[in-house]
Write a protein that binds this DNA or RNA. Structure first.
Length: 285
DNA sequence: AATACAGCCTGGACGC
DNA sequence: TGCGTCCAGGCTGTAT
């Protein structure tokens, strides 16, 4: 599932494919819910003729700046991806929105499970302002992170998945960061000691950086798998814990467990990520 | 404030 | 081989 490294890789690949400066000559919406809340016809009419001026990432959103003060926010959710194809290519059954560019290329939003969203708006900040800090923001210091954790009573994993607390983490990199920091996903956020919080922030950045270097994580071979630039991500070999329930912990050899936290499958080593009674309880004050 | 759960979706894994 | 069933999960909305 696309998280920060996969979104950033998708953006880098589009930038390398020189889509900036291209005009959208025409647009076809094949699955209207992909462009909610606009109606398909309104989306097509409003975006046709606009020029792609900038592209960057914020959290898990791809932010396409267009002229006339319009912004296209794209959330890939589970299976969204972009493909550039020559004009006249045969239609892919999972393409949901197709942009005809002015250089005889097609920018196709491909989304098997149809959860992804393309939001065309003049006020992207209404959405982006709800996001928490970027994990790599140099202004996000270890001490701030510790203090923010101390104020919260939720389970640490639920908090890391909360995009308004920190933006860009999803299930895979969350499990990997918690394992690398030796922190049980059910730990109460407020129970983390200062050195644990500091280490967790370091490990979050490490696992994301590894993911970025490897162009993201692709799991399995099927239709729903993550691709960018038509290629698989190479990060699955760098995973230590995610998707490895029943296998041995690479650090201590214990059997990796899978539990559910905040409704998500969560992988952990019961020895490297111990939880104590006080860690699982809400601390007073 | 935190949690749980349904809903949105389909391909793939699994059992028989 | 071919069904049926369940699972995966980011996010939103609703209920507790």
């Amino acid at each position: 599932m696309p998280e920060l490294p996969e979104i950033q890789t998708s953006i880098n690949d589009l930038l390398n494919s020189r889509i900036i400066g291209r005009r959208i000559n025409d647009c076809r919406v094949l699955w209207p819910r992909s462009v909610r809340p606009l109606k398909a016809g309104d989306f097509q009419a409003r975006i046709s003729g606009l020029v792609l001026q900038q592209l960057h990432r914020r959290g898990k959103y791809m932010v396409f700046r267009l002229n006339r003060d319009q912004t296209l926010l794209v959330h890939l959710r589970m299976t969204g991806q972009f493909h550039l194809r020559p004009a006249g290519s045969p239609e892919d059954p999972h393409d949901r929105v197709i942009f005809e560019l002015d250089d005889r290329r097609r920018l196709c939003f491909h989304d098997t499970r149809k959860f992804g969203r393309l939001i065309l708006t003049a006020d992207p900040e209404d959405i982006l302002n709800r996001l928490g800090p970027e994990p790599f923001d140099p202004a996000l210091g270890a001490e701030d992170f510790f203090r923010a954790l101390r104020r919260r009573r939720s389970r640490i994993k639920a908090l890391l998945l909360d995009q308004s607390f920190i933006a860009g983490l999803g299930n895979i990199y969350c499990d990997e960061a918690l394992f690398a920091a030796g922190i049980h996903p059910l730990r109460n956020a407020a129970s983390l000691r200062e050195e644990e919080a500091q280490l967790l922030l370091v490990k979050i950045r490490e696992v994301l950086n590894t993911g970025l270097r490897n162009r993201g994580t692709s799991l399995g071979l099927g239709e729903t798998n993550y691709l960018s630039g038509g290629r698989r991500g190479e990060n699955s070999g760098a995973l230590h814990i995610y998707g490895k329930a029943g296998q041995r912990c690479p650090r201590c050899g214990s059997v990796i467990e899978k539990i559910y936290v905040a409704g998500r499958g969560s992988h952990l080593c019961p020895r490297c990520q111990e939880i104590t009674l006080e860690g699982s309880l809400t601390s007073p004050g």
